[in-house]
Write a protein that binds this DNA or RNA. Structure first.
Lengths: 222, 222
DNA sequence: GAGCAAATGTGATGTGGCTTACATTTTAAG
DNA sequence: CTTAAAATGTAAGCCACATCACATTTGCTC
């Protein structure tokens, strides 16, 4: 009974959690949000988790000056609010829809637990999902601890490329929806520094970029 | 069926995991380590988790210069290697006993999963444990992102005080086993900076300290 | 297509904390 | 008690980034 679930690169919970196949567990319908709508606030009771069926969701917090700090941007098939499973009964961040429309598939906790107990495979998928989140987190942490800003930005772009890069000729194009402020938040620096680095990388002909796209000429040099 | 497990501050798995009460699940015996013994290495197959029954365990890694980097120091009743539960089939760090003797209660994965499925309370305890680890991690991350070194050190000392501080007169004493290098690793800075800050805090009559003890005169100013 | 807010670009200036390079003290080992 | 190794102390110099202060560009709204 060797269970090497870790070797799979992605858990696709979409087809498991999708409400069509889960009548009786999920509420059987999607929630629809407009761009800018908050899905939950800090302090809200954690009643369950969400899977993104369509659109993008930002997980954010606000610093003491009231500026928005982006902690993650998630897309279709991705899950958020999963700390509820781990016994966190209050949400700690804001979750905000940032596309229109944003469709979410909510799933309440008791159903989750029941499913996890009854469906071994599902349970392991959830563990794996959480494990991956932790790994990602640890990776960010170590990066912050050991690497300078430029290295961090390069790693981030490489990750983006791997995740959603498209080959076009001998370059890789990544379409994204981050502002430079978002990049800065995500790698732990300031917007101005990101601007400077983007231009530095452009100068060195490693990448080129516009608002919503990055073209990578030379992945190795990143 | 409201399950507010999160409100409990600590999960005490000790009395649940303790092998005396778990014949059939655990191997029914402790593992004994000497100071400096490695419990596992990076790349080792994750066969299960460990609970510390007696002594201290360091989770460490090594940077490219071969210097030891301390990632955590754990004591009695604490658990490590728990990422195994989340599907990580290889250990990513070194675990090293740093007291003599160090007694560990090992528990293999299949038994863990079985227990988690059959014993609801146990399952939730494990979730909560993992949840707390994540919270701790996120806290460290945010601290690193937003606070300067002095603030981070103060937070760390306050945590120590809360966790194991003892009132003596109108000061709080914390006996610990960290070197200044350990402090530095754990808060993400260099040893020299820690030394400077310790002396700064001493000068300002907020704390006093010797090798293995910190006396806190004024918790509020930390 | 005028007007405005958000996003991006770029210089000048400041500084926290890393680096380097030793001195001193404490602990462990023989 | 001696000696070596580990831990701690201190100080000068430097540099990656933050901060501040605007300029410019882009994209949306009316």
């Amino acid at each position: 009974m060797k269970e090497n679930i870790w070797c799979l690169e992605n858990v696709n919970l979409y087809h498991i959690l999708c409400p069509h196949k889960l009548k009786g567990y999920s509420k059987g319908h999607f929630q629809n949000y407009k761009s800018g709508d908050f899905i939950y606030f800090p302090g809200d009771t954690s009643k369950g988790i969400f899977m993104i069926s369509k659109g993008k969701v930002k997980i954010v917090s606000y610093n003491k000056n009231g500026d928005e700090v982006v902690k993650a941007i998630l897309g279709k098939g991705e899950i958020f609010g999963e700390k509820a499973i781990l016994g966190s009964n209050e949400r700690a961040d804001y979750a905000m829809a940032c596309t229109e429309p944003t469709l979410l598939c909510p799933m309440d906790l008791p159903s989750m637990y029941e499913l996890m107990r009854n469906n071994k495979k599902f349970g392991l998928s959830i563990y794996k999902l959480i494990g991956l989140r932790i790994k990602k987190m640890e990776r960010r942490f170590e990066s912050l601890l050991f690497h300078d800003v430029r290295t961090r930005l390069c790693e981030f772009i490489k990750d983006l490329a791997e995740e959603k890069g498209v080959k076009r000729g001998d370059m890789i194009c990544v379409t994204h929806f981050y502002t430079q402020k978002d990049f800065a938040d995500l790698i732990g620096t300031k917007r101005e520094t990101v601007t400077r680095l983007f231009n530095e990388l452009k100068q060195e002909e490693i990448i080129d970029y516009s608002r919503k796209e990055i073209q990578i000429y030379c992945l190795e040099k990143l």
